[in-house]
Write a protein that binds this DNA or RNA. Structure first.
Lengths: 196, 196
DNA sequence: GACAAAATAGCACGACCGTTCGTATTCTCT
DNA sequence: AGAGAATACGAACGGTCGTGCTATTTTGTC
């Protein structure tokens, strides 16, 4: 790998961390460069604009999510196990200590929902992809007979998303130690009600 | 009402609107003052610091929420009707067009969850109060016999919160026209499963 | 209507923002 | 090893940020 690409990767890695905590808006080139012991202009020249940096941060974050959550889920057998794998890996992802601000899907979602532009376009699609992945996983679970045939799979995807968001807020803002337990309970109930 | 208090109210009213869209961090004194045709320093002198302004914005937002959602719910008969009233008024609140950024509980929650300080302290408590209100409403529903006796009321509060958050993200980021329908469906299912 | 008090404005400050540009350094390849 | 490209740096820019000061205007009271 060339030197430039290597630095760029280091930059984005740290930038994703900062953005998860402070948001895309709270991520500044000055702070980022000093944390990485780079000059502001040196860092800047990798991206050409802050908008582009933000966009690349989102790309990196989504890639990391796919690697950490989606891929292990795909490795599990289709049907209920895959859905369980997704949920468990998502919980681990949201608790991952080297993402100090929690799941970037939550942070960025709130930040971008009112700000038109390429960042929003990209991220909104990525978020939709996550929901679509869940809906498809549910359909496979219907096909394998784990879930009942008349299950509304899109509603199921919505429901899972709700639990993920609820956990995130309860865990991070309220610091409720029972957050995980509540999320698991809701998850199990949803699974039960999705079966025959 | 004195002139000063009147201006202060105008300031906070507009500030809440801006903060709902751009977050507390995106709310700047310069923008706010020019939108209200006030001088920066004139506005500033009402609060003495940006931290204090943010805190007062949160106070105003919570007060508005209580007025718009909690009070009408309290006006409904205790038990299931009150819970329905809360949910319906919350939906209306989250769609309120003069809150351009949606529910400030969502925005502020994400923004403050990693930022210690008086803003976080106040808001975290307010958020907890909302959950506690729901839990208490559920307990009253148990007492009136609308809900089954062995219902976990704190879990119920968590579940309602999940639906609210899921609706918000699905509606605002994905602009999914079915968001409201999905939220209502999840709500009805939760109510059904909470009954005898 | 004078007068104190409250409210608002004007101006300046240091800090940091994103960005540009010219230059120096370091890598990469033959 | 040396040429040429890739990469990084330093200084500076116009702007905006939050925040002090000092005036000036407005308000409410006798």
């Amino acid at each position: 790998m060339s030197k430039g690409a290597d630095t760029r990767e280091r930059i984005l890695d740290q930038a994703v961390r900062i953005a998860s905590r402070d948001g895309l808006g709270g991520l500044t080139i000055g702070t980022l460069s000093s944390e990485l012991k780079l000059s502001k202009s040196g860092l800047f020249s990798h991206f050409g604009s802050k908008d582009e940096l933000q966009l690349q941060v989102l790309h990196a974050a989504v890639a990391k999510f796919n690697e950490t959550v989606v891929r292990p889920a795909l490795a599990a057998p289709r049907g209920e196990p895959r859905i369980r794998a997704f949920f468990e890996h998502w919980l681990a992802w949201a608790n991952n200590s080297d993402m100090p601000g929690g799941c970037i899907f939550v942070t960025a979602s709130v930040e971008l929902d009112d700000r038109p532009g390429p960042q929003r376009d990209f991220f909104s699609k990525a978020y939709g992809d996550r929901i679509a992945f869940l809906a498809k996983a549910a359909r496979l679970a219907v096909e394998t007979g784990h879930f009942r045939a008349d299950l509304d799979c899109d509603q199921f995807a919505f429901d899972i998303d709700c639990i993920a968001l609820g956990f995130h807020h309860t865990h991070r803002l309220l610091r409720d130690p029972q957050a995980q337990q509540r999320a698991r309970f809701a998850f199990e109930r949803l699974l039960t009600s999705s079966k025959a």
